[in-house]
Amino acid sequence: MSSPAVEAVDVRRSYHLDGVSVEALRGVSLRIDPGEYVAVVGPSGSGKSTLMHLLGCLDRPTSGMLRVGDRDVATLGDGELAGLRNRTIGFVFQSFQLLGRTTALDNVALPLVYRGVRRAERRERAEAALTAVGLAHRLGHRPGQLSGGEQQRVAIARALVGEPGLLLADEPTGNLDTGSGAEIMALLDGLVRDRGVAVVVVTHDPEVAALARRRVRMRDGLIE
């Protein structure tokens, strides 16, 4: 059997706020294989976002083991972790998180900047990624000149440009109308099929969750 895209074993994460310890995750085990399409659902405060940050290597577990590909996150330094994020993980955020002063093309090329890819190659790959999400005609536009759906597609292109094994989407349709939301979900669905990328979508929306082939339900820092 191939190694998982990401695997968490009895992962805990607690925060200290004003001297009070809050356990956001209380022992979560989860394995996601390459090409899987997983929806993480649950009410606010159930630990969805914390889990997503851990899977995305933006944060480290307080205890438990977290593996991305064949790397144990606990053994990596901050710099190595940044490199790991850059190479293996793509992020799609609810609020798009595009750089406002920068064109769609340059936004998409940004992860490649931190990989040390040359400018000409970056443009080429960013253009290909934007074409793949149907925005070949919007390369030179700035985020302010694009609709919400288009902006989220730029964000998806950015998440894919580095050819990651895992794509994490946090409420990707949260800021979109129903029509645009459905388009985005169709796009994500296609990715799983065409490229074998593992996709994890964190969402409130039961309709969005219904599109995934597997659902993980969270409550009070645990998987139900």
């Binding site: 933006l58 710099g79 940044a82 490199g83 190479r87 931190y114």
Partner: peptide
């Protein structure tokens, strides 16, 4: 701050 957070998420290291 948000831009910095995004750049880090996309793989920028502390020294970048």
């Amino acid at each position: 701050t948000r831009e910095i957070g995004l750049r880090k998420a996309l793989g920028a290291r502390q020294r970048d």
